[in-house]
Structure formats: C-alpha cells, structure tokens
Design a binder for these strands. Structure first.
Length: 151
DNA sequence: GCCAACGTTGGC
DNA sequence: GCCAACGTTGGC
C-alpha cells in the first residue's frame, strides 16, 4: 500500500467540500508527472490532502483511493477550462482516480511546521519549487505526519 | 500582488 | 534539439 499527497486550493475544492461530497473524481490535473502518479494509485492507498494558496497552507486531512484512475472527463469538454484538443476518448491524456473522504485532522500541519520537522525534510513537498500537485509520501513520513496531526 | 521556480510551446 | 518567451503554481 502506498501513500500520497494531493494539493488543492481550498477556494476551489477544500477538504470540507470532500467531507460533504463523501467521494470525488480527482480531476483537472494537467501535469504529466502528477498524472503518472494518479495512474499509479491503487484502491486503499492513503492520500493526504494539502491546502495550497491558503492561510495557512498545510496538510488538513486524509482521503482514500476508492476507484482507479479513469479518463478525466473535463479533457473532452469544450466548454471546460481544462479542455484538451489533443486528447480523444480513444486516447485520453489525463486521468482521475476517485478519492473518498476519511477525516479532517484535529490539527492542521502547516508548511512552516513541515519545514521545521527534520524527519520531514526529504518530503517531495519541500523539493525544488515544490509545484508538483500529486506526489508520493514515504511510509515513515506518513506515520510521522499522522502522529503530529493527532497529537 | 509580487515573483521565483518551474513546465510548456513553438520558432528556427 | 535548442532555447527564448510565455504560462502556471504557490509561497509570501
């Protein structure tokens, strides 16, 4: 079983929205590296939810993969901002797993706190510009984060 | 709102 | 295939 982190802007789609919806198609990701990770997600994988462009930004809760990635429907929708003319139903370019809400953490783990925690210094989140919106989290990092946010 | 750090696009 | 120009992400 693998662990992941996905970013979302709470003004666009927050963990509260996920709590309300129970499950959601994780769509509109338009970065190849992130796309590749979305395709690797397996049912039952744990997914940390990170609020970006937020006050404060940080890890806010947990979700779980309940459906493998399928073609992201927004790539076919001409009226969508995420329409991709190079994608076709036969050869989709972008993929979306379905995530299910698990819980909101009692404590939000802010980006400065993550930076300060030496055990989390190797997180992909902190690497080079850190713009990747979907990325793996190691077993160790995941268990450390769970401890910190529950305390 | 600014801007650094990327990724993508397209001319050549 | 190089690389300049441009667009985007996301912290601050």
């Amino acid at each position: 079983m693998a662990y992941w982190l996905v970013k979302t802007e709470p003004g666009v789609y927050s963990i509260a929205d996920l709590a309300r919806d129970k499950r959601t198609l994780w769509d509109c990701v338009r970065n190849y590296q992130a796309r590749n990770y979305l395709k690797q997600m397996q049912i039952g994988d744990d997914v940390l939810i990170y609020h970006s462009n937020s006050e404060p930004s940080g890890i806010v809760g947990l979700a779980q993969v309940v459906k493998l990635a399928e073609a992201d429907p927004t790539q076919f929708d001409r009226r969508s901002d995420y329409y991709d003319s190079a994608a076709s139903e036969k050869e989709p370019r972008w993929f979306s797993p379905t995530l299910e809400f698990v819980r909101i953490f009692p404590k939000l783990l802010t980006l400065p706190e993550i930076r300060k925690n030496l055990k989390l210094k190797d997180m992909v989140l902190l690497q080079r510009g850190s713009r990747l919106s979907v990325h793996p989290v190691s077993d160790k990092e995941f268990s450390i984060i769970l401890k910190v946010v529950s305390a």
